[in-house]
Each structure stands twice: as structure tokens, then as C-alpha cells.
Design a protein around this nucleic acid. Structure first.
Length: 102
DNA sequence: AGCCTGACAGATA
DNA sequence: GTATCTGCCAGGC
């Protein structure tokens, strides 16, 4: 179990992801400078209910396997760039957010 | 200690 | 394009 503080930090970053952008699990871990992608995934699976969880995706641009349909629907509705023509993966080169402050 | 699990990532075939 | 393997970090048994 990660510390409460770690959970809070992960959630605070996810909350700040603007509509139309996404971050990979590994990106968040790298930004925090602690833990790894799997730790972020763990936090999301247990505490991600109150944040825009659909903006956290795998590094290859595909949402987590267990809720792919729901996430893609939400992302498309907020204008996230997808790779055409398939449209099943996000265009990471355009959608990835660096967690740069406003 | 040893092995398994996970909303992961990168390299390789 | 897919399938597999290994590495990763933290935790459970």
C-alpha cells in the first residue's frame, strides 16, 4: 500500500489533466519522481473514482483494458485526438500532457 | 527467502 | 499488425 500522501499526489495530478489531453501511468510516476507505472495503476484502481480516470491511459495510447469502451467514449466526446482510421488508440504525440502548470 | 499478482512499459520476434 | 518476455515497484502469502 502506498502512503496516503502518494495517493493524494497521484489524484491531484490526474485532476489537473485538461480535457482533450491525457497522461500515461508512467508519465505520472515519472512526474512524481517516485514509484512506478504499476503503483499509479494501483492508486487509480482503488481511488480513481473521483477524478477523470479516463484521461490516464497506457503509454501506447490505449486505455486500460478493463474499461476501454467507456474511456474511449468519454475521450472522443471531449475532443481528444485519436489515431485514424482505427480510432481505437489515442494519438499520444498530440494528446500527451506534460503536466505543465497553467 | 521465494513466488505470485497488478487499470504498466519497452524490447524483441 | 500481434504475441511474448523481461523489467519495474510495492504488497500479499
Amino acid at each position: 500500500m502506498p502512503s496516503e500522501e502518494y495517493v493524494e499526489r497521484v489524484l491531484s495530478v490526474v485532476e489537473r489533466i485538461p480535457p482533450g489531453s491525457v497522461m500515461a501511468y508512467g508519465d505520472i510516476a515519472e512526474y512524481l519522481g517516485f514509484g512506478g507505472p504499476r503503483q499509479v495503476g494501483w492508486v487509480m484502481s482503488h481511488y480513481g473514482g473521483g477524478v477523470p480516470w479516463w484521461r490516464v491511459v497506457r503509454a501506447d495510447g490505449r486505455p486500460a483494458d478493463c474499461h476501454a469502451g467507456e474511456a474511449i467514449r468519454r475521450l472522443r466526446s471531449e475532443g481528444t485526438p485519436f489515431r485514424e482510421p482505427a480510432g481505437d488508440r489515442i494519438d499520444m504525440s498530440r494528446a500527451r500532457w506534460d503536466c505543465q502548470p497553467d
